[in-house]
Design a protein around this nucleic acid. Structure first.
Length: 804
RNA sequence: GCGAGUGUGGCGGAAUUGGCAGACGCGCCAGACUUAGAAUCUGGUACCAACCGGUGUGAAGGUUCAAGUCCUUUCACUCGCACCA
């Protein structure tokens, strides 16, 4: 029987001997396997962590047995709101809370038997770590990629922090799920938009699943088109719009600007209905997320009276409307509307009775009163003077050419992605290493003065007006300008939680370096991360941010690779036994510690990997857990079947074991753990039928089982083979292809596509030879009697099909 | 609306280039061992008919000697983004 006592016994050996520590030896081929380091919350390790870590643990354990120098590290993403909120509630310092939580997590990681290199742990809240987070920020600042700006930002009233776009997806706060509001605030921003193109390009050189690449591309949201200036009537000014379809400019019947567009206040004296326009703007701002999304089709807007735009191509006057379906944050905050060929413009034109001019003629006649014409790319331009008769694609480039010649616009690429709001008004984060000097402006700290550590404060609570708790640390705030030496004030905002996790994989490589974030020679050996496994929820957050920082560090020569991660995979969710997402409110949460305590770590490991395809969601099933335990018990009972040698050479056992090694090897490499385990079970079933297993075969079996069930494998290894650690003594077995070759092959014989009987033929038999065997087979007569054989298809080693 | 994906027994899920659908596990049924139960071991288990045989991979067509796999149409569900100009 597999008893959990075994777990503790071997964990004590493993974690006291550092057998999982990466070696210094650079002559060895390396493997860097990475998992997302946890946020050490008070709740402890959950099943999501366990599934994510087991996947890479199996790969890492296999790589070690294949003689790779393996780096499989773990650390703590420990800055963050829950710890701070706990501190606010209890008055206990976040440092103390964090330390306690890390201790608990470490015990849980060990209890699951993960083969992490515990000698290289990093902790983002350790000043020796965040020294380098601050250092990177200073480099970003020096390269013009960090700036402070007063803009509309996402703000969570609940958490009292500014959120980045990535943290407020769907209009909900990432942390608390509350409504995100827009608020004007002066905050630090990182110019991630400068890296949009590089982040897109980089996707071509990495091995990421399609869905991850697609999500990132989607998030970056590149579009190409043109910016065009529309002169205003009477006034010597113009309105700049962005469009992806400059070809349709003859179809423009109105312009739309966002309610916040500066044009409104600039020409308030000219706009005769300015009060009405302002009121519309105020109401638009009040709309909730629900109203903006659900009522998207129901267009609203106000026409600007007293001011119009002029179409720069045909000179026509065009009315300007204000409507909230145009966003200030994208493009120029103004569009040229072509209702005949854009659904949104069409809806708007219909509602307000604006003209619709068709400028593309499709293969089919389209009624412009029915719906906007959509079959654009096969269409031909009409009603468009200079581009008439051209195909759409051709017309786009022609129009851009004309616009540029006339000096009224230019080709333009836009991205949906916005700059990264990089400041939180909270205590438990990295202090921004910036001093505000009256004379010199924003001045970064001298690098030799890093780290800038957090001050002690009385209260961790953020201020009511959205200022950081650090604003209360009077002594800490007052400092001298590093540039001119005059009195100056420190920046009091801290960095967002994503900062520390944007480069932690670099620090694992050289965790205690004092001179730089990591030694370049070490980085050259270990980078890139060969395989990074984690959750889908980080695809448009951490995975974008860390690729951005890494690419920047590459550009300034700090790291040797453009991309940090060569390969990325993502595990699927574990659902509750009711098939729903696990959540406290549903009461369907399973605590991995309970499972380990009851069934042992290997049972949990085996079950989680067996439950289904690794990257897909699968529901929890307690009976399945028992099934995994039963399998491990059957493995343990091999103890009583071991023989030194088989009495007679058994070709079948030989073949089955070789088949198994081959299958398990390729399945683990492809993260197809479920079928690897199925094959291991099948093999055990065969051994049980035979009733014996040789020491030699058991050794191979335990070696390939050990990445999945290390405790059971190790226990039996020492018990039956009289040896000590698998990691020290075993090599991943190779496959003897000769032993996979069968003498006789059984194939199916079909008559008209239906299987009728099985036929045995010697390996390597030709079609003719098989046909001979077939014709001498009596069973065939029953199916062909009185019928004419039209055709016989023979694929040696596969199938025979007779058509009658 | 756009993007990615999924649909196979009572359940979780397997099936190289098209080549024996349902591996493996759960559940269920039977037998062995037990005073009995648990545990364990052995066998069975897609469906209909129960003799031959027939039907089956969301649905409907098609290509092919042969389709879960390829093509066309369609339905349902999951995830991500969403007024991307």
């Amino acid at each position: 029987m597999y008893d959990k006592i075994i777990d503790k016994k071997w964990q004590d050996v493993w974690y006291n001997t550092d057998i999982y520590a990466a070696k210094e030896d650079k002559s060895k081929k390396k493997f860097y396997g990475l998992v997302e380091f946890p946020y050490p919350s008070g709740v402890g390790l959950h099943l999501g962590h366990v599934k994510a870590y087991i996947g890479m643990d199996v790969i890492s354990r296999k790589k070690r047995l294949e003689d790779y120098n393996v780096l499989f590290p773990i650390g703590w993403d420990a800055f963050g709101l829950p710890t701070e909120n706990y501190a606010i509630k209890t008055g206990i310092h976040p440092r103390a809370v964090t330390d306690k939580n890390i201790e608990k997590f470490t015990e849980q990681l060990k209890a699951a038997g993960f083969s992490f290199d515990l000698t290289r742990q990093v902790d983002t809240t350790d000043p020796n770590y965040y020294k380098w987070t601050q250092w990177i920020f200073i480099q970003l600042f020096k390269h013009g990629l960090a700036y402070k700006d007063k803009t509309e930002v996402n703000y969570c009233n609940n958490c009292k922090v500014v959120l980045s776009n990535e943290e407020s997806q769907g209009g909900k706060c990432d942390r608390c799920g509350g409504e995100v509001v827009q608020r004007e605030k002066e905050v630090w921003m990182l110019k991630i938009t400068d890296y949009a193109e590089k982040l897109l390009e980089g996707l071509n050189e990495v091995d990421f699943p399609e869905r991850i690449k697609a999500q990132q591309e989607n998030w970056i949201g590149k579009s190409t088109g043109a910016e065009i200036d529309f002169k205003l009537t009477v006034l010597e000014d113009s309105l700049k719009v962005y469009t992806t379809r400059p070809d349709t400019i003859y179809g423009v019947t109105f312009m739309v600007i966002a309610p916040e567009h500066p044009l409104i206040e600039k020409f308030q004296d000219r706009i005769s209905n300015i009060e009405q326009v302002r009121e519309y703007g105020i109401n638009a701002k009040k709309k909730t997320e629900f109203e903006r999304v659900q009522l998207a089709k129901d267009k609203t807007g106000v026409k600007l009276e007293g001011i119009e735009a002029i179409n720069p191509i045909n000179g026509k006057n065009i009315p300007i409307w204000v409507a909230d379906y145009v966003m200030m944050g994208y493009g120029t905050g103004a569009i040229m509307a072509v209702p005949a060929h854009d659904t949104r413009d069409f809806d708007f034109a219909k509602k307000f009775g604006i003209d619709i001019i068709q400028v593309i003629q499709g293969e089919q006649e389209v009624d412009v009163n029915e719906a906007p014409y959509t079959d654009i790319y096969n269409g031909v331009m009409v009603n468009s003077e200079i581009v008439n008769g051209m195909k759409v694609k051709e017309a786009i480039s022609k129009m851009i050419e004309v616009i540029q010649e006339k000096g009224i616009g230019c080709a333009k690429t836009n991205y949906f992605m916005k700059d990264w709001a990089f400041a939180r008004q909270r205590y438990w984060g990295e202090p921004l290493p910036i001093v505000k000097c009256k004379k010199c402006g924003m001045v970064p700290l001298d690098e030799k003065d890093l780290p800038l550590t957090l001050p002690e404060v009385k209260d961790f609570k953020p201020g009511q007006n959205g200022e950081s708790p650090l604003a209360e640390a009077t002594e800490w705030i007052h400092t001298k300008c590093p540039h001119c030496g005059e009195d100056a004030l420190r920046e009091t905002d801290t960095m967002p939680q994503w900062a520390g996790s944007s480069w932690y994989f670099l620090r694992y490589i050289d965790p205690r370096n004092d001179a730089c974030l990591a030694n370049l020679e070490e980085l050259k050996y270990w980078l890139p991360v060969d395989w990074y496994n984690g959750g889908m929820e980080h695809v448009t957050r951490h995975l974008i941010y860390s690729r951005f920082w890494h690419r920047f560090l590459y550009d300034i020569g700090v790291v040797p690779t453009k991309e940090p991660y060569a390969k990325r995979s993502a595990q699927g969710l574990i659902l509750g036994s009711d098939g729903e997402k696990m959540s406290k409110s549903r009461g369907n949460v399973v605590d991995p510690s309970d499972i380990i305590a009851e069934y042992g770590a290997d049972t949990l490991r085996t079950y989680m990997l067996f439950i289904g395809e690794y990257d897909e969601a699968a529901p929890w099933n307690e009976n399945g857990v028992k099934g995994a335990k039963k399998f491990l018990d059957r493995v343990m009972r091999l103890e009583f079947m071991v023989v030194d040698k088989y009495e007679a050479y058994d070709k079948e056992l030989d073949m089955e074991l070789n088949k198994l090694v081959k299958k398990v090897s390729s399945d683990i490499d492809a993260m197809k753990y479920n079928t690897a385990i199925a094959a291991l079970m099948t093999y055990i079933n065969i051994v049980y039928k035979k009733g014996v297993i040789s020491r030699e075969d058991l050794k191979k079996f335990l070696t390939i089982l050990s990445p999945i069930a290390p405790h059971v494998s190790q226990e039996l290894w020492s018990k039956c083979l009289g040896k000590e650690l698998i990691e020290r003594e075993a090599k991943w077995p190779s496959v003897d292809e000769n032993k996979l070759v069968q003498q006789d092959i059984e194939i199916a014989v079909q008559v008209n596509g239906v299987v009728r009987f099985k036929l045995v033929h010697p390996v390597g038999a030709s079609k003719e030879e098989i046909e001979e065997i077939l014709k001498s087979d009596e069973r065939l007569n029953a199916y062909i009697q009185g019928k004419v054989i039209k055709k016989i298809i023979i694929i040696p080693g596969r199938i025979v099909n007779i058509v009658v």
